[in-house]
């Protein structure tokens, strides 16, 4: 039986439909990523799974308990880190951690081994008020507080938003270590590059999941040719120009390059057409798709 399962959940705020028929299954001990832009409905889904919101229809189970009927059972078993910083800014690092330990009827000493890896990094600042920490430090403290009671399932809503790239990398390393200890983790993020670090990812947009699979399987099923080219100075002009080439489906910026998607053209054909359109094709090459490319591709087409 799955540790977390959501079935046909719908939720609307007034006229706005936040979730349109969402379902998911998360296996015990896996790291599940929900990837989607802002406003996709990630936070609403988290709040339903953590018993904070009752869905309009559909149901959700966590650790075998129903989120509506057995609310208090679930609240004992899970750890939740909301998307915005939700610790007490006027309490110190130490005070926050021991408060949350007490809230869950445990002590910091009891479960110190669990948070040790992360807590060691913020320990030099343990006398500092939480409000005065840097973004990355805050998130590390929040993670410590969310798991000080050794939860069975850990819900992390955009834990790396607003965190510098180095801290983001560290954060994901911590998540892998936690999963290795058998904890089930559900994490949401707007950063596509983090998707490849999950066991399973769901791509989410406009209140709907349009793809749920392992990151490898998602990129394998891309099914089209993908090319990259260094655009030079006039990126915007090149973007329109390349997209207008016959046989090209989409062209979008990807880091310092442009990605070009085509289901029919080979590298040679594209080179020829781009060259005749007056582009410098010396950097044009075929490349392997990432989760972001898959997301962009779904974005450009209809849902499956």
């Amino acid at each position: 039986m799955a540790e977390v399962s959501v079935r046909n959940v719908r939720l609307s705020y007034g006229k706005i439909q936040a979730l349109k028929d969402v379902s998911l299954e998360v296996e015990e001990g896996s790291l599940f990523g929900i990837i989607g832009p802002d406003g996709a409905g990630k936070t609403s889904l988290f709040r339903i799974m953590t018993t904070l919101i009752v869905p309009d229809s559909g149901s959700a189970q966590v650790c075998g308990y129903d989120t509506v009927k057995d609310m208090m059972e679930i609240r004992r078993l899970v750890g939740y880190m909301p998307g915005h910083f939700s610790l007490y800014q006027d309490l110190t690092v130490e005070e926050n951690l021991s408060l949350f330990a007490s809230v869950f009827n445990t002590t910091v000493q009891e479960n110190y081994s669990l948070v040790e890896d992360i807590y060691r990094q913020i320990e030099p600042f343990r006398k500092r008020r939480a409000g005065k920490l840097s973004g990355g430090m805050k998130q590390k403290l929040a993670l410590c507080c969310a798991m000080i009671h050794r939860p069975r399932v850990l819900f992390l809503d955009e834990p790396t938003t607003g965190v510098d790239p180095v801290s983001r990398k560290e954060f994901w390393q911590m998540l892998s270590r936690l999963r290795a200890q058998g904890m089930t983790i559900i994490v949401s993020t707007p950063y596509m590059d983090e998707a490849s670090l999950c066991d399973t990812v769901s791509l989410m947009k406009d209140g709907r999941f349009f793809k749920t699979d392992s990151p490898g399987a998602i990129t394998e099923k891309f099914g089209k040719h993908l090319f990259e080219i260094k655009a030079g100075v006039s990126t915007v002009k090149a973007l329109d120009g390349l997209a207008a080439i016959d046989g090209v489906q989409a062209c979008y910026p990807f880091g310092d390059r442009l990605h070009i998607v085509s289901s029919s053209l080979s590298l040679a054909e594209l080179s020829e057409r781009a060259a005749s359109a007056g582009y410098d094709i010396s950097t044009l090459a075929e490349c392997t798709p990432t989760v972001e490319d898959c997301f962009m591709d779904f974005d450009n087409n209809d849902y499956e």
Binding site: R75, V78, F85, V103
Partner: peptide
């Protein structure tokens, strides 16, 4: 307002 209630609610308090 600061969201700490959200965390407290998801606890056995």
């Amino acid at each position: 307002e600061t969201g700490t209630m959200e965390v407290l609610l998801v606890s056995p308090m």
